[in-house]
């Protein structure tokens, strides 16, 4: 069995701001090569955790190990191998994109050639504007410049804090494609925070959902999302008729809720087709079948609570 390296290991991490508990006994592991989804509604403690990961703030207790070494003791060594975007992308607005990257390259712990800076500017589509002051950049351009600065010193671990926030759908797709490319082609480990489950589902291998600073669930994205029952809503032409057909059958117990033209069942994945077939055979017109995974349902719930 090949040993799996923990790139990030967070152990019993706590961070309080006065009376507010931002991170509550958090534990998580990010493995080498992961695109790790760090999911949680706004205010769940994602940004605080990321700030802890890049030493912007210090924990009240607990430990963070990155590359198997304590962040507290080997901060400089670790940060040489980490690139990060923390919250919104801010730069020295009075300097050009190139100058910003140039400055940052000089404090990145390794030598970064100018050609590398141009490569990155090209990668994020800012090469044409490299001379412009950052204050003239749109949010999306800054976001992309943020990615460029995180990649500057070719880090093994890239921490991205909601990198698609504020981008248009096309921009979002660009960033997602870039993250997948970095993971697949360059074997980067990526720690990606998001408050959008579908985004994590699209690009992450493993994930954790946190809420109120606590881990809710952690594991493989596919497993987590596809395990367990689904909430499936059937849109039908006649709700009463459907009810009477199902009455006395085992299906009836699985009805979760009923509305004007919809019935929602709690079903296993395999049951969906069977039920649909049964209804159609009994003369019900099913105009739509909408499955919702329970985790998604749950996530929507905590998100709406947080908002």
């Amino acid at each position: 069995m090949a040993t799996v390296e923990n790139v990030i290991e967070i152990i019993n991490l706590n961070k309080r701001f006065k009376e507010i508990v931002a991170v509550d006994n958090l534990n998580l592991k990010v493995l080498r090569g992961d695109v790790f989804g760090f999911l949680g509604p706004n205010g769940a403690g994602k940004s605080t955790t990321i700030r802890l990961l890049v030493s912007l703030i210090a924990p009240n207790s607990g430990a963070i190990n990155i590359f198997g070494e304590s962040l507290k003791e080997n901060r400089k060594k670790i940060l040489t191998r980490v690139g990060a975007i923390v919250e919104k992308p801010d730069f020295y607005n009075y300097l050009s994109a190139y100058k910003n990257l140039k400055i940052l390259s000089k404090i990145s712990g390794i030598e970064v050639k100018s050609s590398r800076i141009f490569e990155l500017l090209e990668l994020v589509g800012l090469k044409e504007r490299y001379k412009s002051k950052v204050k003239t950049y749109s949010h999306g351009m800054k976001q992309r410049l943020g990615i460029a600065q995180a990649l500057l010193h070719d880090p093994e671990l890239i921490i991205l804090d909601e990198p698609t926030t504020g981008l248009d759908p096309f921009g979002m797709k660009e960033i997602r494609d870039l993250i997948i490319k970095l993971s697949k082609e360059e074997n980067k480990t990526i720690f990606l925070s998001s408050h959008i489950l579908s985004e994590i589902e699209m690009i992450a291998d493993r994930m954790v959902i946190i809420n109120k600073g606590k881990t809710i669930v952690e594991g493989e994205v596919k497993e987590l999302l596809n395990s367990g029952t689904l909430k499936v809503t059937f849109e039908v032409d006649n709700v009463d008729k459907t009810k009477s057909i199902l009455d006395g059958k085992s299906w009836y117990k699985k009805i979760d809720s009923i509305s004007e033209d919809k019935l929602t069942f709690t079903l296993e994945q395999n049951d969906i087709g069977t039920l649909n077939k049964y209804l159609v055979e009994n003369g019900i017109t099913v105009s739509a079948v909408m499955p919702k995974r329970s985790l998604e349902e749950y996530f929507l719930k905590i998100t709406s609570e947080a908002n």
């Binding site: 030493s55 912007l56 400089k76 801010d90 607005n93």
Partner: peptide, 14 residues
């Protein structure tokens, strides 16, 4: 104010 602490302090400088 500029938010650039985040750029600086996440670098390997003390």
């Amino acid at each position: 104010t500029a938010g650039t602490y985040r750029l600086l302090i996440t670098r390997p400088i003390s």
